[in-house]
């Protein structure tokens, strides 16, 4: 049952060197995308503790986007690969818990891919809109 007015709350964890720069480039190029995303800048996708994603969902965030440098481009040599391995496991685990796979998405965006960043945001927002607000895992007081 899709609520047409549902505006999901999305958190994006971006690495400083590629994806955050890509998001900046989307801005410099004035590529418009939905306002739902709150970006958290981290030095590297390898810094992202899986706990952050779990906590975000528990806090009622409807979707999480994680983005780092393309494989081979990591500013810290291999952080994105470390991240990739971790997230593959986490995703399986979340699906096992009944979290829709669309809620947690991973992508690679380089510093020169402003349009791609905007496109990914649109995709994530639309897909999360489709599945509706998060119910599972949310801690309610």
């Amino acid at each position: 049952m899709m609520d047409k007015n549902f505006e999901p709350r999305i958190v994006a964890f971006l690495c400083n060197w590629c994806s955050y720069a890509g998001a900046d480039l989307a801005g410099v190029s004035r590529i418009q995308y939905p306002t739902n995303v709150r970006i958290i800048r981290l030095p590297c996708s390898g810094r992202i503790n899986p706990l952050y994603i779990v906590k975000a969902l528990q806090n009622g965030v409807d979707g999480v986007l994680v983005s780092g440098c393309h494989p081979g481009d990591c500013h810290y040599i291999s952080g994105n690969l470390v991240a990739g391995r971790k997230f593959a496991l986490l995703k399986n685990f979340l699906v096992h818990l009944g979290i829709e796979p669309e809620r947690v998405q991973f992508s690679w965006v380089s510093a020169s891919e402003g349009p791609r960043f905007a496109q990914i945001v649109k995709k994530v927002v639309n897909e999360v809109k489709e599945i509706g607000p998060i119910e599972k895992m949310v801690k309610r007081l």
Binding site: A23, A26, G27, T35, I39
Partner: peptide, 18 residues
């Protein structure tokens, strides 16, 4: 806090939400 590249410039038509 980045409110230009990642906010005002990418939400030019949605002033309230931005």
């Amino acid at each position: 806090v980045n409110i230009r590249e990642q906010c005002s410039w990418v939400h030019q038509k949605e002033q309230e939400k931005a």
